[in-house]
Design a binder for these strands. Structure first.
Lengths: 195, 195, 195, 195
DNA sequence: CATGAATGAGATTTCATTCAT
DNA sequence: AATGAATGAAATCTCATTCAT
C-alpha cells in the first residue's frame, strides 16, 4: 500500500535489473502481460533484449518477482499501520491511504498487477500462495484493530472492509475521475466512528 | 438435390455459434483471453478453426459479443428484482442471489469475463461503454430501492453495496470454498434490516 | 478490341454462368486475381459460392475461360477491320478504336486481364499459346493492311504499331485522365497519312 | 564476451537485408507478388522466416522498398544519358540500352516488378506517386533531347518513344527469344536519324 | 441446378528465447 | 554484464473447395 519504491529498488543489487522491473511494471499494468513484448520492456528500460535473461529466467519469472515485490511493499504499509496505537487512527489512516492512494500511479500499477493474477491463466501455485498469505496478513492486521475497537465480529469486519475497498478499486478503474473519493471515504468511515 | 431451407440453415448457424461461444466462455474464464488460441476453442467446440470466422469477424469481436450476452443476462436479473414491491425483499433477494450465486459455474464465467475487460489492455471503447452502462443501470436499480427504504444517501448506498459484493467476488475467487457465504450474507444484510 | 459483350454473353447457355463471368471480369480487373475471393464474385453475381463449381472446375479455370472470351472478342474486332477495303480507313479505324476505346470500362477490363497473364505466376501453357496466337493474328491483320499501303516493311510496321498502342495503354493506366488522347492519336496517324 | 561493435552489427544487417531483397526480387518477378509466400523468400535467402520482419514491417513494405530501389537504378541510367552532349548520340544510347538491355536478367526483374504495380490491386499511393514521378523524369530527359534535335513536338515525341519501348518490352515478355532485337532497334532509330 | 455451412491447408505476422561476440 | 541479430514455434486469419441437402 505504501509506495516506497525508490528505496526498495535502490536496494537491489543491479541498476539494470531495477530498470527492467520498473519498465515492466509500467507496461504490464498499462497494457497487460501477454500483450507486452520483452523487446518493449527492454527498450523502455534502455537495455538490450538479451540482458533480461541475465536477471530473469523467463518472462513469467519476471512477473512472479514483480508480484513478490509488490506484496512486500504492501506488507510494509500494513506494518506501519500496526505500529499506531489508537485503533480509530489506525483505521482512519488505512482507509484514507487506500482510497486516496488509488489514484496514485504506483498504486494503480500494483493493484492492477494483483488483479492480473486473479484472472491469469494457470497462475503458479506459488503466486496464489503469496497472494493468499498477503490477504490473510491484511485480514489479521485489520482484525486486531477491530478487536481493539471492540467490534462484535472482528474477523468478518476485516473481510468486509477489505471487500469494500477492493470493490471501490474496481469502480475507480471503470469510472476513473468520476469516482467520488470524498463521499466514499466518509461513507466507509461512518461505520467505525458512528456513535 | 433440393437445397436446405432458410430455416434449416438458420438452425445450423445458431447451433454452431452457440457451440463456439460456450467453448470460448469456458476457456476464456479458465485460461484468459490472450492465452486461449482459436484452435483450442474450435477443438473444444468440435468445429473447424476457420468456422469461427463465419460467425465472428475476429477473436476480439467474439469476446465483445460474449460480454454483451453476459451483461444482458445480468440485466434480466436486475429487471426481475425491480418488479418486486417491498424494498427489503428486493434487497434481500438481490444480495442473496449475488452472494450464493457466486458459486454457480455460469456466474463464475460471466463475472470473470467482466473482470477480464477491466484488466484488459486497450479494451475497445464499445466494451467499456457497455460495462459502464450496465453498472449505471445496476446503481439506478439499487438507488430506487434505497430511496423506498428511505436511507439517507441512496446513491452512495448503491455504490457501497455494489463495491461490497464485487469485493466479495474477488475474495471468493481467491479463497474458493473457504469463503464464508452465510456469514458474509448476514453481515451485509445487517446494514439494511438493522432496527 | 470491339466490345460486343452483351451479345456474346447472351449466347452463353446459362444465365448464371454469364453472371459469374461478368462479376469476375469486373473484380479481377479492379482488384487483381489473387486478391479476389470466389465468395466476392458469387456475391456480386448474386449466386451461391458453390454454384461456381458447376460451371468451372476451379478459380484458375474461370480465369482461363475469361481470357479466351476476351481474345475471341478482340478477334471479332480485328475481323471487322479486315472487311474494310481502303487500308487508310482500316488503319484509321483501328487506331481510333484502340486509343479512344482505352477509356471504355469494358476495354480496360479486357486489357488489364491480358496484362494480368503476362505477369501471372506460371501461366498455363495454353494461355500463353492463346495469347501468342492472338498477337500473331493481330500482326497479320496489320501486316496485310501495311502491304496494301505499300510500306517498306509491313511485318515490322505491324509490330511497331502494336507496341505503340500497348505502350500507350500502360501510360493511360498510370496517368488516367491526364493522358492526351487527341494528341496521341494525331501523332500515331501522322506516320501513315504523311505525304 | 565483448558485444559486437556497431560496425559489425551494421554489416550483419546489411548483408541479411540484401539477401532477402535479392531473393524476393527473383521470386516476385518469376512468380508474382501474391503467389510468393514469405517462407519461400526466406528459404531462398537462407534465413529464417521471422527475420524478414526485422527489416521490413510487412510484405507490402518489402515490395515498396524494392520498387524504390529499381526506380533509383533507372534514374541513374537516365542521368548518365543526360550528361552526353550530342542529342543523336543520347537517343542512340538510350534506345540501345533499353532494347538490348531487355534481355538482362536484372532488367527483366526490374521491369516486371514495375509492371507488377500497374496491375496490382490497390497499389499504395506512395508507389503510384513514385512511379509517376519516375515516368515524368524520363519524359523530361527525352523532351530535352528532342528539343535539342529540334523536333516539332518534343513532349509528344518523348511520350511516343516511351510507349514504343515499353510496348516492345511486353512483346519481348511474350515472345522471348523470337523478339527481333536488331530489326526493332533499326526501326525505332529510323525516326530520329532519318534525313 | 442451386445453396451456403463447413473444412483445413496455408499465409502473414509476432515474439520469447538463444547465442556469438 | 551486455548486445542485438537470428531463430522458429505458434497465433490469427483467409479462402478455395467440398458436400449434404
Amino acid at each position: 500500500m505504501t509506495p516506497r519504491t525508490t528505496e526498495q529498488f535502490e536496494q537491489m543489487r543491479s541498476e539494470s535489473k531495477s530498470k527492467i522491473m520498473a519498465a515492466a511494471l509500467e507496461l504490464f499494468t498499462k497494457q497487460g502481460f501477454d500483450t507486452t513484448p520483452i523487446s518493449m520492456i527492454s527498450k523502455k528500460a534502455g537495455v538490450s533484449t538479451g540482458l533480461m535473461y541475465n536477471y530473469f529466467s523467463s518472462k513469467d519469472q519476471l512477473l512472479e518477482e514483480m508480484i513478490h515485490e509488490a506484496l512486500e511493499m504492501s506488507k510494509k504499509g500494513l506494518a506501519e499501520i500496526s505500529e499506531i496505537d489508537d485503533p480509530f487512527v489506525q483505521i482512519e489512516r488505512f482507509v484514507n491511504k487506500t482510497i486516496y492512494g488509488m489514484r496514485k500511479r504506483q498504486t494503480i500499477f500494483m493493484s492492477k498487477l494483483i488483479l492480473l493474477i486473479q484472472v491469469k491463466p494457470n497462475p503458479s501455485p506459488e503466486m496464489v500462495l503469496l497472494l493468499k498469505e498477503y490477504n490473510l496478513n491484511a485480514y489479521n492486521t485489520l482484525e486486531n484493530i477491530f478487536e481493539k475497537m471492540e467490534l462484535e465480529n472482528p474477523e468478518l469486519e476485516a473481510r468486509l472492509l477489505t471487500a469494500i475497498l477492493s470493490g471501490f478499486r474496481l469502480q475507480y478503474f471503470l469510472f476513473k475521475n468520476d469516482f467520488q473519493f470524498d463521499e466514499m471515504y466518509e461513507l466507509v468511515m461512518e461505520r467505525y466512528t458512528d456513535i
